[in-house]
Amino acid sequence: MKIDLSGKTAIVSASSGGIGLAIATGLAEAGANTIINGRSKDAVDSAIAKIRDRIADAKLCGIPSDLSTQAGTDALVKAIPAADILVNNLGVFGPGDLFTTKDEDWERYFCMNVMSGVRLTRAYLRGMMERKWGRVVFMSSESGLKIPPDMLAYGFSKTAQLSIARGIAKFAAGSGVTVNAVLPGPTASEGARKMVAETAKKEGKTIEQALNEFVMATRGSSIIRRAASTEEVANMVVYACSTQASATTGAALRVDGGIVDSLT
């Protein structure tokens, strides 16, 4: 299967690193005009340089803005008024149970993980529907199905993304626009690698060993028994954004390594 997104404009929120950067790289490799986003110009410029090292002729544009705010969203939409592909990747995660998560933390998760995607989709969906083609992907998580009690606000925000993606898919029925959620499991992003780096050093292990042991300690139902790579997650997203995925919409597409023990 050859995925060709030439002539399509793709926006990936929070794409200066981690899974977002891998997604942006995959879309650029498929020929899309890819918009790189991050909160700082330095981070965006660095991401563009990394992609160009791999894809010399990549069509890239960098827009630094904080998409957790309405002002940041407005700045992006002003710079890029229309898009064919939108990947709502912006999100934060961290520990916190019912008693330790403060009101302001709940609001931060909601603004970053939920409202950033709502605002961007609101801005770009109408144009997609008028042009009779578009792809919207919400980056959720297996934690949206297997809610971690020690990351409660995060799990809530990821469940919310599943509901929103399904509802928008139904709203866009028959328009040629697909809307899906992608659910990664533990992924070997820069953030995850940094999280286990100190433990790995203390125990004389590689970061990969420490990360995979963390996966099995916290997600024992994993079938692949390791963290996924950012590229493995990106592959699913690029497919969901392709012309070939025209019959896939309203779906929760899992790249969780089999953690969620469900037949559906």
Score class of each variant (00 low, 15 high):
A56P: 11
L86Y: 00
V215I: 11
D66G: 11
R54G: 14
G38A: 09
A24H: 02
N88L: 06
G7A: 10
G155F: 01
S262N: 14
F156W: 12
K170L: 14
R39K: 12
F156S: 13
R131C: 08
K132G: 10
A160S: 11
Y109V: 11
D150N: 13
D45N: 15
A75M: 08
R108C: 10
E29N: 13
F93M: 14
P184R: 02
I85N: 02
S68P: 07
G94E: 05
E107G: 09
A251E: 11
A43R: 13
G26R: 00
K202W: 00
V215D: 02
W133Q: 09
M195N: 10
N89G: 06
C111S: 15
N113Q: 12
N180E: 07
L86H: 00
A75L: 12
S46V: 13
I3G: 06
G38T: 08
E104V: 13
A188H: 04
T34A: 05
K41N: 11
G38M: 08
G62N: 07
R108Q: 14
F214V: 08
M128E: 01
S65V: 09
N180M: 06
G134K: 03
F110S: 14
G62T: 06
S6A: 15
I224V: 14
A58E: 05
V12E: 01
A245Y: 00
R226G: 07
E104K: 15
S229Y: 02
K201T: 11
L253I: 15
P81L: 07
Y239E: 08
L98C: 11
A160V: 05
T100S: 15
A47Y: 00
I223W: 05
V233F: 09
T243C: 12
Y109S: 06
V77Y: 03
S157M: 06
A24W: 00
A79Q: 14
E203L: 12
E232P: 10
E213N: 10
D57G: 07
G62M: 07
T178Y: 02
A169N: 06
M128P: 03
A200H: 02
V179D: 00
V44N: 04
K78W: 02
M216E: 06
G134H: 00
G117I: 05
G176C: 08
I3Y: 03
P148M: 06
M139S: 05
N89Y: 01
A173G: 13
V238Q: 02
T73F: 02
S6D: 10
I51W: 00
Q70H: 13
A173K: 13
L21Y: 00
A10C: 10
V237P: 04
S242Q: 08
A32Y: 01
S163W: 02
E198A: 15
S246G: 12
V137P: 01
T101V: 11
T69A: 10
Y124R: 09
D261Y: 07
A153D: 04
S163G: 15
L152Q: 04
M129G: 06
E203T: 09
I224T: 13
P149T: 14
V44H: 04
A227T: 09
A228V: 09
D74M: 07
D103V: 10
T101W: 00
L90A: 15
S157P: 07
N33A: 12
V179R: 02
G72Y: 01
R135P: 03
T264H: 12
K170W: 01
V136N: 01
G191R: 14
